[in-house]
Design a protein around this nucleic acid. Structure first.
Lengths: 192, 192
DNA sequence: AGCATTTCTTAACTTAAGTGAACGAGTGGA
DNA sequence: TCCACTCGTTCACTTAAGTTAAGAAATGCT
């Protein structure tokens, strides 16, 4: 498992043995099997999750049904709202694939901020950009039909359609799996 | 008009004549009539809008139809995504009521940041909180039906239902005005 | 390989939103 | 004051999503 992490990291940076030791003693990188739950509803956490490899999803359980609201794949990350509100989480986070996830902590952030003030600027810019992106996504969702949302997803995130189960995709699009099947059949029908 | 601004401000802080002059020379506060457009589609801007009194809305025009995606009332604000992406705006911003709006500029932010480093921390926290709120709202929208969204709106933003025209509310809920009428009739029917 | 489980699709039926049109109430302007 | 216009509601009809059920296909486990 450590080899997988090191192999992955070596694609990006060259590490001295000391640095490798330092990284593992930091206990920041984690390898999870597909299906592993990182956060459960009702649980309190101060952790943020950043995906290096694989894919994780956030979902609510409403009336016994899973409602997937977001996917985070390579180089994407989440800080659950409950981290900021200091309340139990409203949703679950779990891995849709075997994944390497960087897990960081509010306290860790504070330590880094104290050492490197420029890190704060980075975080502000990062979070402002995320906010803008999220706003655009939200607007796109509101102003389009399920079918348009699906067609849009094909354009913007073709990988998701391949790697994620249909029923999770469906709830991500705000519809039932049966409706997604039908909708896809409709699109293919129209093409031919 | 300056009296209205001063009257409003005096509820919160006491100002010396010099400060009053300083405020107006800053040219930060603006009074707009209902219906005034602050930002047009295709326009470039570096401005953020913060509502002190009244209410503004953001909307797209898609196939000649207005699609309202957000309302900002007292003590709420927006930075349009186009400010960050440096591209022409995709949407309009206009006043749904006579409003007092604080308009600030990316450059102004930089100046303030340089003078007061703690201001950066404030901005980061503010934008992280906004991000969390937005995420919660987005999730709530995705996981609920138009009717649930309307019922939710009654709980969370009862003021909007009173002060905003139905057809804008409808598009904010992601439906047509006729559907909103029907939906409301359905709810009343069920109560009795 | 064989069995159980999950996942995806199809179908028939129900429910709710979209569409186009008409009507009355309210609003603003000449 | 009167006219035109906007706004909200209602109705009839269309379209698409929800629901329930069944079966085929893929997956996982032993």
């Amino acid at each position: 498992m450590q080899n997988i992490l090191l192999g992955f990291l070596s694609k990006y940076i060259t590490l001295t043995p000391e640095e490798k030791d330092a990284i593992f003693s930091l206990d920041i990188f984690h390898l999870f099997k597909k299906g592993t739950t990182l956060l459960k509803e009702g649980q309190k956490t101060k952790e943020s999750y950043f995906v290096l490899k694989g894919c994780i999803r956030t979902y609510y359980v409403i009336d016994g049904e899973e409602k997937t609201t977001a996917f985070y794949a390579e180089l994407e990350g989440v800080t659950p709202p409950c981290v900021l509100t200091q309340t139990p989480s409203d949703y679950y986070i779990s891995c849709t694939e075997d994944s390497i996830v960087l897990i960081s902590d509010a306290e860790m952030g504070a330590v880094v901020n104290a050492k490197f003030p420029r890190f704060e600027t980075l975080c502000r810019i990062f979070s402002e950009e995320l906010l803008a992106k999220q706003q655009i996504d939200f607007d796109a969702f509101k102003t389009s039909s399920p079918e348009q949302r699906y067609l849009n997803l094909i354009q913007k995130r073709p990988d998701l359609i391949q790697r994620v189960p249909q029923h999770q995709l469906a709830s991500y699009l705000g519809i039932k799996p049966q409706s997604l099947s039908r909708l896809r059949a409709r699109i293919i029908e129209r093409k031919s």
